[in-house]
Design a protein around this nucleic acid. Structure first.
Lengths: 261, 261
DNA sequence: CATCTGTGTCCAATATACCGTACATGTGAT
DNA sequence: ATCACATGTACGGTATATTGGACACAGATG
């Protein structure tokens, strides 16, 4: 990632990067793990991981939980995250927008952002459908897999996009290869139209709608999305896009704005 | 602060500790600062702070905001905090408990925890009072200043308590000195009775009620509190304590329990 | 003009953080 | 008993992270 600059083999890693690699890994796994397991799965020296884990435990960044010496993200991270959320106070308005979308469309509505060089669902309202069609909140997903991804990188140049997205993220879950040049074309199209919709490429039965929520810098700081069954999505396309744009307009001042002026 | 183990002068600080010192400092300040200012105010070498800030920026732990090169807590921290909150899923039940307390008492209700070796208000419902009597959410406060503090350290031995709480935290905001031995007596009393109430020692017009929320380890993982005008508090003492205990009982299984079992 | 403060960058010295390796333990399989 | 493996601890060598100080610049102040 960011963290993994793996220039070449045989380099010593910086403690700080290793530490956040551990934290990110635990977040991805969403469960407590033993230091040993962490070391094995992220491919880091065991002694280093033990040392870092102990340091992080002392600072409250990690906590023992789940027994057997397993550790998970700690309370301090919750406090820091709450401070961020309080400063860039998008949560309240975001929930309102999702609520509104849910009422108007009865479909699954999501608020999405970049997490480093991947995509993540920050908040979600499940639709009224009897079956559940959605990614989990907080999971990082390759940018090219998502409709929102086309919008979230649109402020970068072609070359920057290719540098930014890890090469292996162009491989789809079914093993197919997505041509990066094709992706770029879609990015530019999404940029021009201010929206992107497609039949999901990670499953075979949903249609996805995404519109940008522009921050103060003028480009997409986040997206609002709908994930719908294919027939419903295509049948209600105009209505859904109208709802999304209206909801996004209501948010357009919120992200990256301080609560206390 | 917590992180500062300052054994003696003249020691090199570990990057990780320094980094989290920076993060904690920004959280306390609740505003974006320039690296230079951070270095000056936490008493760290400028060159170190610049290097660390740049590293943290690259990882998304810090973000530029506020212009002029100022930095504040970053989006990644929000994601990590959200993962913590999702794992130890106390938020929903916590809000319900505060809601209930607010309805029953019309007073300011708080959910509080330890943040390292200090006390912090995690969530709060303002009371119906025309005036506002409360600490800000997310600020760290010396443990001895608060009613909850008596409960949150009760699982420690006398000596552990004295080691745990920074000596200067026994000095009250008005300059008075709180005798640690006296504090210990109150801790043991609170432990026996399963509650603590007093006229606030940080102002002259409120009365505070605190009851423990016990985690799976059996000791106070958090507290529920009411902050009331003195007359009202004393007049409604029994009623308020009853409400608090009921609300705490409703939470007692929640903290430190995994959502996905 | 000179001077001072606030800001950011660059650099070399050395204290030490990272890591490989060995050791100690427990558990389960053969 | 012997092996294999998972887990945690201990320790020394060396690559390097941390740090003080030099440098550059801009704005304010006198």
């Amino acid at each position: 990632m960011d963290a993994v600059q793996d220039e070449a083999a045989g380099k010593r890693a910086r403690g700080l990067d290793r530490a956040f690699e551990i934290l990110d890994f635990l977040r991805q796994k969403r469960q407590a793990l033993k230091p040993n397991e962490i070391a094995a799965q992220i491919g880091a020296p065991r002694s280093s991981v033990y040392e870092l884990v102990n340091l992080l435990l002392q600072n409250g960044i990690l906590e023992f939980t789940g027994g057997e010496g397993r550790v998970y993200l700690g309370r301090k991270l919750y406090f820091l995250g709450a401070a961020y959320e309080n400063h860039f106070d998008f949560t309240r308005e975001c929930e309102a927008a999702l609520e509104q979308l849910a009422n108007e469309t009865r479909e699954t509505a999501q608020f999405c952002m970049l997490d480093g060089n991947r995509y993540t669902v920050v908040r979600m309202r499940e639709g009224a459908r009897p079956f559940r069609i959605s990614t989990d909140v907080g999971q990082s997903v390759p940018i090219p897999w998502t409709a929102s991804g086309r919008l979230l990188v649109a402020h970068l140049s072609d070359q920057e996009i290719l540098n930014f997205i890890p090469a292996q993220d162009f491989r789809l879950p079914n093993g197919d290869w997505l041509d990066p040049q094709n992706f770029i074309v879609e990015v530019r199209q999404a940029e021009r139209e201010g929206l992107f919709t497609f039949n999901s490429i990670v499953d075979s039965f949903t249609h996805c709608f995404a519109v940008p929520v522009r921050g103060e810098e003028g480009y997409a700081a986040a997206t609002l999305c709908l994930v719908t069954p294919r027939d419903d999505g295509i049948a209600n396309r105009d209505h859904y896009l109208h709802c999304l744009k209206k909801a996004a307009a209501g948010l357009e001042h919120a992200p990256a704005r301080s609560k206390r002026g």
